[in-house]
């Protein structure tokens, strides 16, 4: 093939004539002016950051995530107790935020109890995203009976309430971390698959997909390289939303005693353990509740801002 390569170079005098007599005057001008009008880069990220609520969301999320990440490292140096050490009798105002139902230091348990929730939530969301993305893209791309099969199976899963499904699975398999992640991930998958499917359907009619087909690109590569990069917008939004739900679900399951097991320190579990003393020693409940609330609000704001940034080009002027 090497000897053919020089053919590609403009060589004939006519070629140069075309070059010279070919003023793409308007085309180059129009792109130049377009950039001038928008005034600098205008990407999803810049539009995201231009919104006030995005900044608030990032700050709120960063506070809680920072607390949960650094908290365990500070124990027992900062508070004097580990998460399971007894500090005093139950529900006493000892230490910064008092003691819990077994007399352990609430502040220590709060600092140490966020990490598991966070990474379980992240893992569950990631699992749901991977599953949903694969199923959704396959359904849209292959179409036909596979589409019907996947989407109807989705509908069946969607008919079962998320928490009931989780209760069932955990009752059967036992309250272990991987079960929790798996169950939450699987219940997310149908919802993500729907989003992925509709986004894929929007992309699939584009000519560049046909072009890839024409060049006989292997279908798996076509999905990953041609389609996936073009549906990241709606998927990022969906991921943010599902993360919020994951946090809520895992905290709920822990509260119900089906997530983290005692004596592990965990925010959801803490709420359950200490709720009986809400009127006399409320910190054991209030701290984890506040943390979970701030975290979900933060991730929700991020997801919402991402949705706006990827949907509209003028989100910047709204805020």
């Amino acid at each position: 093939m090497a000897e053919q390569t020089p053919e590609l170079q403009p060589q004939s005098p006519e070629t140069r004539a075309v070059l010279a007599g070919d003023p793409e005057l308007t085309s180059t001008d129009s792109t130049a002016s377009k950039e001038a009008h928008t005034g600098g880069r205008n990407t999803v990220l810049t539009r995201f950051w231009a919104q006030g609520q995005a900044k608030v969301g990032v700050i709120l999320t960063a506070i809680v995530v920072g607390l949960a990440l650094i908290g365990p490292l500070l124990l027992p140096w900062a508070t004097g107790y580990t998460t399971t050490e007894f500090a005093a009798r139950p529900f006493q105002p000892d230490g910064l935020f008092g003691t819990d139902n077994l007399g352990r230091d609430v502040w220590s348990r709060f600092l140490g109890g966020g990490l598991t929730l966070l990474y379980y939530a992240a893992l569950a969301t990631a699992l749901g995203m991977v599953l949903g993305l694969i199923l959704g893209m396959l359904a849209a791309y292959v179409g036909g009976w596979l589409d019907s099969l996947i989407m109807r199976a989705n509908d069946v899963l969607l008919a079962i309430p998320q928490l009931v499904f989780a209760l069932l699975a955990i009752t059967v398999l036992g309250p272990q971390g991987w079960v929790l992640v798996l169950v939450i991930g699987i219940t997310h998958a149908p919802r993500i698959a729907r989003v992925a499917r509709s986004a894929t359907l929007g992309v699939i009619s584009e000519d560049y997909i046909r072009a890839a087909e024409m060049y006989a690109m292997p279908r798996s590569r076509l999905l990953v390289r041609e389609i996936m990069p073009n549906i990241t917008g709606p998927l990022a939004v969906e991921a943010g939303l599902r993360l919020t739900y994951s946090i809520g679900s895992i905290a709920s399951l822990s509260f119900l005693g089906l997530g983290m097991q005692p004596p592990t320190a965990d925010w959801g579990l803490m709420i359950n353990e200490n709720r009986i003393a809400l009127s006399i020693q409320p910190w054991g409940v209030l701290l984890p509740v506040a943390a979970i609330a701030v975290l979900t609000i933060g991730t929700n704001l991020i997801a919402d801002s991402l949705a706006r940034a990827s949907a509209s080009a003028n989100a910047g002027d709204q805020s």
Binding site: S12, P13, E14, T15, R16, A17, V18, A20, G21
Partner: peptide, 16 residues
């Protein structure tokens, strides 16, 4: 460019 282009264009034509 135009005159140069046109002459070159005509010169190139038979060859191509």
């Amino acid at each position: 460019e135009a005159p140069a282009g046109s002459s070159a264009g005509f010169a190139g034509r038979p060859e191509a």
